[in-house]
Write a protein that binds this DNA or RNA. Structure first.
Length: 845
RNA sequence: GGGCGUUUAGCUCAGUUGGUUAGAGCAUCUGCCUUACAAGCAGAGGGUCUGCGGUUCGAGUCCGUAAACGCCCACCA
């Protein structure tokens, strides 16, 4: 028997290990149709946050539903090595231990990194377990494991030979703290306060100067020209002449280039080809030399002369001071401008000329755009608007910088010998080749995740069976990093979309709508929530509280009320089990009206729940189940069942419906449903069959009868309560009322013959009764009655008007018109009835 | 500059292809310890669905327009 109180800790304890031992999450039943989800591999950088809990809860709900619906469900787990993020954490830890991470040999450092990985992977296993995720651990992968590394090399080598990967010197985004190149996606633009420094660049041999405005004066050591717009009448005459670069006293040309916008600043722009992407282009057009002025760590190099060694921002201060001294600084204009920051380290990104590896994006992106036009083969986004995000990215994307100056990652399979380059799966056999020191962007391997995890490039049984995957679940913030890249790599290498559907959820915010972040300290640890309310409550809350694709404000109150809901289920189950006839099969026979009523509601619930489950609209599922369980099953049916609890049909109906409820709830609340289900059956609910809609359990007539009766009861109670009746009243029943109504209303001993005292009519459809109440009617009572009458009258008026509208009668669906007519008649009768009573009263008074 | 989203009860959110008098949770008010549950039961109050215009017999829902808030992308000397 279930414990008296629902205790989530007791319920959830140790269950997960049992499930795993029993192999409930294993895929592979060849007799079934496969259904696959690959988990978005969490980074091995730390603990899972609420966003992970949400993301994985959604996936677990889908996979459990599919498993119960007869699919060979595979939910493939795994983790991501998370190159730059993990390396930063490992370095930080080493520094805390007093070790300079760069003083270690690569192999030594990697050993430390693997130790870190093991530790954090264990944390994540633990958290997955707490969340109750039905992952098939037999298929688990890690982005750095051998198979996946092989897939990464294969992709690199193939793209290289197809001309879609190349090595070149370009302006890239440089992170001076992590000392690595970044992709565009890893740069976060933030509006910060800055300044536009207006500097005099004197024209050679003249006492004239051009006013150059720049936000980064420290880069002037790399200036190799100044540019003006060739159409700018102010400066045309200077094109071809030279200016003297301040502080450096070097002569550099004045060029005419459309990049200079006459409207912006002074219309004169300094050109620093090695430190700005636009300047790089200008430099190419005018054949300018490229001077790098910084070391990789953001300090100035030898090209900065006396400023060598200074940090870039320190140098900026010095340069400004020195320009001021030489009277070369015209003014400092404070501006707000957006500046790129490194996603991981948050330092200002430095545009930097550097030799890196790139993926040539245009052909790959075009293939995606083409494929999205084909309804049969495209990736379907849920909600569909997110497709535009991907398509837009595909339209504007440019080459992807994939090399990273890190140790933690897939080493680039390129070897150099002098000027020769060799790219291949393995090192060349001859001596003298040196492998590229760099590793690949972590997203390069994640981009292959849906197929590399299934054994690609080998054509394995798993790949054939489970690929393409059915649905990918992730947040909208990950679309550019991951979804887009999986899509083009999947198309290119497997000729198929990597997933049929891409289900997008939002971000978790705090109750004030702010992003959860470490700096704000408003983060919520899902493990704390689980400890307080249980994983079941958290999962149900996360999955059902918001529509697909929109953000979620975390509110503890709501988790708490979900806990109450589970407690309700727990208690209802206790009631059913207490009254259970042991060891009998459930046979739905000799049903009474209320049995038929709940069965009808139950079947309709199944039908609608399945509809919404299939569309992944869990919010709607939540609403349906909540209403059905709490209102219909608990508050209505169980209350009715109490009057026939000794009868077999009642016991059977209770148990039958409870089983279905547990099954429908199971994907959302695996723990508590498992616990209760085991009290009923020996089998596992996880692998049991999902309820199916059965039309033969729909009883329209009885359903209507009980629904009307319940509504009648509600009206009756309302009148009693509104008039503060207490127990001093009598009732005359004027039409047939089911016995159960008398029982529910507790009026079996109050039936009386008509009395000429204060009375109230209770009318609903065919059901009528009059309550006699031995109390003088007060003014308030009369006002109340008047109010009721007026509401009724206006409703009748509304219906009359509607029905007299020819267009409505002609064009609206017939059943609606009929319904209107019926309601009108009912209300008119009710009005007549009420007014009749009123007349009596007024005669009395 | 381009695009997207949101705006519904005090708060957080639902609202299917347009169809009675717009729903839920929490909060509020009233009455109840009724033997599954007081973390509960029974009942109630609370909304000009952001504004304006249009289509329609009928608009929270479709179209146009404006505003507020938020997000994404691009540019930024």
């Amino acid at each position: 028997m279930l414990e008296k109180k629902y205790n989530h800790r007791n319920v959830e304890q140790e269950k997960y290990e049992t499930w795993k031992k029993k192999g409930l999450f294993q895929s592979g039943d060849q007799t079934k149709i496969p259904f696959t989800i690959v988990i978005p591999p969490p980074n091995v950088t730390g603990r899972l946050h609420l966003g992970h809990a949400w993301d994985t809860a959604l996936q677990d709900i889908i996979i459990r539903y599919k498993r119960m619906s007869g699919f060979d469900a595979l939910w493939l787990p795994g983790m991501d090595h998370a190159g730059i993020a993990t390396q930063a954490k490992v370095d930080k830890k080493l520094k805390e231990e007093g070790i300079n991470p760069r003083s270690l040999k690569r192999e030594e450092w990697l050993k430390k990194a693997w130790e870190w990985k093991e530790e954090y992977a264990n944390t994540i296993y633990n958290q997955w377990g707490k969340l109750g995720l039905s992952l098939d651990y037999n298929k688990e992968r890690f982005t750095l494991d051998e198979g996946l590394s092989n897939a990464v090399r294969k992709v690199f080598v193939d793209l290289y030979h197809e001309g879609l990967i190349y090595r070149g010197e370009r302006i890239i985004n440089w992170d001076p703290l992590a000392m690595t190149a970044l992709s565009n996606e890893e740069v976060i633009y933030k509006d910060i306060e800055g300044a536009l420094y207006h500097i005099k660049y004197f024209i050679k041999n003249k006492n004239e100067y051009l006013e150059v405005a720049t936000t980064r004066p420290e880069t002037l050591f790399g200036d190799t020209a100044v540019a003006v717009n060739p159409k700018d009448e102010r400066y045309q005459k200077y094109i071809g002449q030279s200016v003297i670069l301040p502080l450096v006293n070097k002569e550099i040309p004045i060029v005419g280039d459309i990049h200079a916008d006459p409207e912006f600043g002074t219309g004169v722009v300094k050109i620093t080809p090695a430190h700005d992407p636009n300047d790089y282009e200008v430099g190419m057009r005018h054949n300018l030399s490229r001077i790098i002025v910084m070391h990789p760590n953001g300090t100035m190099n030898e090209n900065a002369g006396i400023y060598e060694g200074l940090d870039r921002f320190e140098c900026r201060k010095q340069v400004i001071q020195d320009l001021k001294k030489q009277n070369l600084l015209i003014k400092i204009e404070n501006i707000m401008h957006s500046v790129g920051h490194s996603e991981r380290t948050d330092v200002l990104v430095e545009p930097y000329l550097s030799k890196q590896w790139f993926v040539k994006m245009r052909p790959l992106a075009n293939a995606v755009l083409e494929n999205q036009k084909n309804k049969e083969t495209k990736v379907n986004f849920l909600p569909s608007r997110y497709e535009k995000i991907m398509n837009h990215w595909m339209e504007i994307t440019y080459d992807w910088c994939i090399s990273r100056q890190l140790w933690w990652g897939h080493r680039i399979p390129a070897w150099y010998k002098g000027d020769e380059i060799y790219v291949g799966m393995d090192a060349p056999l001859e001596e003298g080749w040196v492998q590229d020191e760099d590793v690949l962007d972590t997203w390069f391997s994640s981009a292959l995740w849906p197929f590399s995890t299934l054994g690609w490039p080998e054509l394995t049984e798993d790949l054939k069976r489970y690929y393409p995957t059915n649905v990918l679940v992730t947040g909208y913030d990950i679309i550019p990093f991951w979804v887009n890249r999986m899509t083009f790599q999947g198309l290119h290498f497997t000729n198929q979309r990597p997933f049929e559907y891409c289900m997008i959820h939002g971000l978790i915010r705090d109750s004030k709508g702010r992003k959860m972040s470490k700096s704000l300290g408003n983060g919520v640890d899902p493990m704390d929530v689980i400890d307080t309310y249980g994983a079941d409550a958290l999962r149900y809350y996360l999955a059902t509280s918001t529509a697909l694709g929109t953000d979620l404000r975390y509110e503890e109150e709501k988790v708490k009320s979900t806990w109450n809901f589970i407690n309700k289920i727990w208690n209802a189950s206790r009631f059913v089990l207490m009254n259970r006839k042991i060891d009998t099969e459930i046979k739905l026979e000799h049903l009474n009206d209320s049995d038929k009523w709940i069965l009808t509601h139950y079947e309709n619930t199944i039908k609608n729940v399945c509809k919404f489950m299939d569309r992944y609209e869990f919010q709607n599922v939540g609403t349906l189940l909540y209403h059905f369980i709490w209102d219909d099953f608990c508050d209505s049916y169980i209350e009715m069942a109490k009057f026939s609890i000794e009868e077999e049909h009642t016991k059977n109906t209770l148990l039958f419906v409870l089983i279905g409820i547990l099954k429908m709830l199971h994907p959302f609340m695996p723990y508590v449903t498992d616990e209760i289900y085991h009290e009923i059956k020996q089998e596992e609910i996880t692998t049991s069959d999902y309820p199916e809609y059965e039309k033969k359990l729909i009883f329209k007539t009885e359903e209507e009868k009980i629904t009307d009766m319940l509504e009648f009861i509600r009206i009756f109670r309302n009148i009693k309560q509104e008039n503060n009746m207490g127990k001093e009243f009598f009732v005359s029943i004027e039409t047939h009322l089911p016995d159960i109504a008398l029982k529910l209303l507790k009026i079996e001993d109050k039936i009386a013959i008509k009395k000429e005292i204060t009375n109230y009519a209770v009318v609903y459809k065919e059901l009528k009764a009059t309550i006699y109440y031995e109390k003088e009617q007060t003014k308030e009572d009369q006002i109340l009655k008047e109010k009721q009458l007026n509401a009724l009258k206006s409703s009748i008026e509304r219906r009359k008007k509607l029905l007299s509208n020819e267009n409505y009668v002609k064009k609206a669906p017939t059943h609606l018109v009929e319904e209107e007519k019926k309601k009108l008649l009912e209300e008119q009768e009710k009005l007549a009835n009420l007014q009749g009573k009123d007349k009596n009263e007024w005669k009395e008074n």
